[in-house]
Write a protein that binds this DNA or RNA. Structure first.
Length: 882
RNA sequence: GGGCGGUUAGCUCAGUGGGAGAGCGCUUCCUUGACACGGAAGAGGCCACUGGUUCAAUCCCAGUACCGCCCA
């Protein structure tokens, strides 16, 4: 990208406001960026693409701290690659979030005394659309306030017509390939959302519970089938869910468990009704250590039991309906019919106790399945649902990882991904909510299934195959994650062949929180490979979860949730971003978020603002172009800061390439504050710095702002515009090039030594209690210190150098004898210890023989240096003693 | 139960097979002509514990303890 335009000097000098006020800057700059189309790109095959598909936030969402931790890195990466000249594009959009949105709507309707059924599907959906449109703007507005730079013109919504067409096309294709089927399976039922959910949407929560020990009486010819009496012989079973006893179909024991060998093949009666007899079977899935070693088998309401049932050819009995109430549909449930499940549990336990069938109960901690979305305890139910056959899709997705075509940062998440895909089960994709993509599935009056991309097509098919056009559409909708799984290509216009699709699929990087690797990441890989034949991204950058400073999960109920917009209001977007980014470490799985980091970042911005003001108010004319003086004219401090700038550019670029945003932020921060402001700017106040300082200050500041821009876009732009610059916006300014920064390592090294000396002298001043404005004299050999260095000592250490042929080459302040002696003694002790350490090390033949040559050489040099220092101190001591 | 992390200064965290680091906090001093949202100096650490590998371990390996995440 050659963009040599006329250098524009600032025509709008920032007015002197201290402290820096982000409010007067951020909104104005963002508006300008957006108006000038700086976020927008067209597909350009001539440049390397850098595409990030924004994980679509829920259309009803408001920005939360998790957006801060995942979307800020995305923006930083896109801004960085944009400055590097890539065809960089951040593609935004929102998700219809079926279950979450429907939950809100249903609640709202209930308040009005209505329901979706009374409203009817069409009216209901109209309302949902209106609600989505109303909410949708909020999150995008908040993202703008955070300074995010996606190409808003390309924003998509998962229920847009184009994306819906993509969903139908993929569904039909999968169905025709035999990868989508309908079947009665045990699925996860969320009784609050009133829909099934996939395994990936189920969370496991540790809870205190009760383990009940229940007697199952042996069934025999002499045993009465009902009533209070039962055979003396019985088997005791431990269960956490007595309410499901009504659906028991067997008792299972481990085949090697001697205690129960005699029982296998016998029958027992199911309490508390005792009207049904079930067999005792042997299965290796039973853990003999759990409870009594005998467990009840309830295939209609437990996944493990379902598998046991399948193995033994046992029936599956459903005893609960969709309200999680007891139903007599499959089996006699006696007086419990119609009761809610918790109520049933209490009644059955009471009845067992009354019938003396309850042996004991004990406290028990175990994991229960909970709906991630509603928090409802998930009920496994046998239902007719639609599924995606997972294994054939998982295989290529596993290969993509194993071949290195998809890699994870940090790497360890790759193994998590691998394990999940290896153990993947068929994916339940039908939902009973209305807000979403309705299944493209129709049924003929006699139950034949038609799958087609449109109703017309379905009717045509039905006519041809079954001679009927009378169809009813399946009322279910698709899992939200089905449509988001198509995101990387559906937003580019697929199934149309668009230039965007051609150029921008696959994308380069997926940035996401670890919690949706399975829900979203893995499914994008599976569906991307299936539909496009190519994995949808190369890198998966997994960002840490955000906790509060005490390491607790942020939640509304705990009251510890941090609203990023409040922090933006308080400190500005740049400060929020820097505060967040500085806490992100690539390897971390969590961030204990500290608001103080945002406050520090605000202070940092103020520092930048003030140093800019210093540069702008120099008495001399600022250069009109961004050029450096001839190298020969540069003074030592100039050479030092330029060398530091060079190294900072190299470091920051490398860190950004490796997704190390936290360390990159730390690095640029350190350069600007502790090297540029604290040392270089102070050194420009020397008389001898006047010739070159305006050029070097503006050059370094300009470069520093470009390095900072991906992290803190607003203040970097504001400062960059105020100083000599090249172009219209820092957003498309070129990324700093270390080759354009002159290096002088020798002088830079000498400056580091002087800096240590100055610190030492300041320390001595402080120890002496010398007033800050009082100068101290130091006698130094005439040729040991240059005129430039003399001024440096005077200005930065308050030490006046007095040339003295009798003095040594070291700057030693004049001070009372006892003070000096104490100093010398301390120094001597330290040096002696160092010399001793070095001698011991080098005296070790093993060390000299085994250690690498450069390590040994370094030790030798160190020892030499300490020895001569020690010698000097000892000489000075004997001199002052005279 | 299986897998994966973490344990370094009061707090939050970097870091390296060869002399322990940052920011905040703390102490002392400073209204020095960019900045008190600032400047200067300083105190503070058996780098969780136990073994092993190595000339050399905070770093590599094994085990223990505690904290956490994911999956079942």
């Amino acid at each position: 990208m050659n963009r040599r335009r006329a250098v524009s000097a600032s025509n709008s000098k920032p007015s002197r406001t201290s402290p820096y006020d982000p409010k007067t800057v951020e909104a104005r700059l963002y508006e300008r960026w957006e108006r000038n189309g700086y976020f927008h790109e067209e597909p350009d095959p001539a440049r390397p693409p850098f595409i990030i598909c924004m994980p679509p936030p829920n259309v009803t969402a408001r920005a939360h701290i998790g957006h801060g931790s995942t979307y800020t890195p995305m923006d930083a990466l896109v801004r960085y690659r944009r400055m590097c000249g890539d065809n960089a594009e951040w593609l935004p959009g929102t998700d219809h979030a079926a279950i979450a949105t429907e939950a809100v709507l249903v609640r709202e309707l209930a308040r009005e005394g209505a329901s979706r059924e009374t409203l009817g599907r069409e009216k209901y959906l109209e309302r949902a659309w209106a609600w989505a449109r109303e909410c949708g703007g909020t999150i995008e507005r908040q993202f703008r306030a955070l300074g995010f730079s996606p190409d808003w013109a390309r924003s998509r919504f998962t229920m847009d017509e184009g994306l819906s067409a993509a969903v139908r096309r993929v569904f039909v294709t999968l169905y025709r390939d035999g990868l989508i089927y309908r079947g009665k399976r045990l699925v996860n039922w969320d009784p609050i959302a009133k829909t099934t959910i996939s395994d990936a949407e189920v969370e496991h929560e540790e809870r205190d519970a009760t383990l009940w020990y229940v007697r199952y009486p042996a069934a025999g010819p002499s045993t009465p089938l009902a009533g209070a009496r039962y055979a003396r012989d019985d088997i005791t079973v431990a269960t956490t869910r007595p309410e499901t006893m009504l659906g028991d179909v067997a008792i299972a024991v481990h085949p090697d468990d001697d205690r129960y060998k005699a029982w296998i093949g016998k029958s027992v009666l199911v309490p508390p009704l005792l009207t049904r007899s079930i067999p005792v079977i042997a299965d290796t899935a039973v853990d003999p250590e759990f409870g009594t070693g005998a467990v009840k088998v309830t295939p209609g309401h437990d996944a493990t039991d379902f598998e046991i049932g399948e193995r033994h050819g046992l029936p599956s009995l459903s005893i609960m309906d969709l309200e999680a109430r007891i139903t007599a549909a499959d089996v006699d449930v006696g007086p419990y019919a119609g009761l809610e499940r918790a109520e049933t549990r209490a009644r059955i336990v009471a009845d067992l106790r009354a019938a003396k069938l309850l042996v004991k109960e004990e406290a028990h901690r175990h994991a229960i399945a909970v709906s991630e979305r509603t928090g409802a305890v998930v009920e496994p139910l046998l239902l007719e649902q639609w599924f995606v056959t997972a294994k054939p899709l998982a295989k290529p997705a596993l290969d993509a990882y194993r071949d290195g075509r998809v890699r994870f940062v940090p790497e360890r998440y790759g193994r998590t991904y691998e394990q999940w895909l290896e153990n993947i089960r068929d994916w339940n994709i039908s939902r009973q909510v209305w807000w979403g993509h309705q299944l493209p599935v129709w049924y003929t009056p006699d139950g034949k299934t038609i799958v087609a991309e449109s109703e017309d097509e379905a009717i045509a098919q039905a006519q041809e195959l079954y001679g009927t056009g009378e169809l009813s559409r399946d009322p279910d909708t698709l899992d939200t994650w089905f449509s988001s799984g198509l995101w990387p290509f559906s937003i580019l216009g697929w199934p149309e062949k668009t230039p965007e699709l051609e150029c921008w699929y696959p994308s380069q990087t997926l940035v996401t929180g670890g919690e949706i690797i399975f829900l979203w990441g893995a499914r994008m890989v599976m569906l991307g490979l299936y539909v496009m034949g190519k994995e949808p991204f190369r890198d998966v950058f997994v960002t840490p979860l955000v906790f509060d400073a005490q390491g607790r999960k942020m939640s509304k109920s705990l009251g510890n949730a941090i609203d990023p917009m409040e922090l933006v209001e308080k400190y500005g977007a740049d400060a929020f971003r820097m505060g967040m980014l500085r806490q992100l470490r690539v390897e971390a799985q969590e961030v204990r978020f500290q608001e103080s980091r945002c406050e520090e970042a605000r202070n940092f911005n103020n520092k930048i603002w003030n140093v800019t003001w210093y540069v702008l108010s120099l008495p001399e004319q600022l250069p009109s172009a961004l050029t450096l003086p001839k190298t020969a004219a540069l003074n030592p401090a100039d050479r030092w800061i330029l060398t530091r700038l060079h190294d900072t550019i190299v470091d920051v670029s490398g860190l950004l390439d490796g997704y190390e945003l936290g360390n990159a932020a730390e690095r640029i921060w350190h350069f600007i504050w502790y090297e540029f402001c604290d040392w270089y700017v102070e050194a420009t106040k020397l008389e001898q710095a006047r010739e070159t300082r305006a050029a070097v200050l503006t050059f370094v500041l300009n470069n520093a702002m470009r390095l900072l821009h991906p992290l803190a876009p607003f203040i970097s732009e504001e400062v960059w515009l105020a100083l000599p610059h090249d172009g219209d916006t820092i957003m498309t300014a070129t990324w700093p090039d270390p080759l354009e920064v002159p290096l002088d390592r020798e002088t830079a090294g000498r400056m580091e030594v002087l800096r240590d000396e100055i610190v030492r002298l300041r320390n001595e001043r402080a120890a002496l209690g010398v007033a800050p404005n009082a100068a101290l004299d130091a006698k130094v050999a005439p040729d040991a210190v240059s005129a430039y260095e003399r001024e440096l000592f005077a200005r930065l250490a308050g030490v006046r150098i007095v040339p003295d042929v009798a003095a040594s080459g070291r700057v030693e302040i004049e001070a009372p004898e006892d003070f000096l002696r104490e100093r010398y003694e301390k120094e001597r002790a330290h040096l002696r210890a160092e010399v001793e350490r070095g001698e011991k090390k080098l005296g070790n033949a093993q060390f000299v023989a085994h250690a690498k040559a450069d390590v040994v050489e370094k030790e030798r040099e160190k020892l030499e240096r300490y020895r001569s220092e020690l010698e000097r101190v000892e000489r000075a001591m004997s001199e002052s003693a005279q």
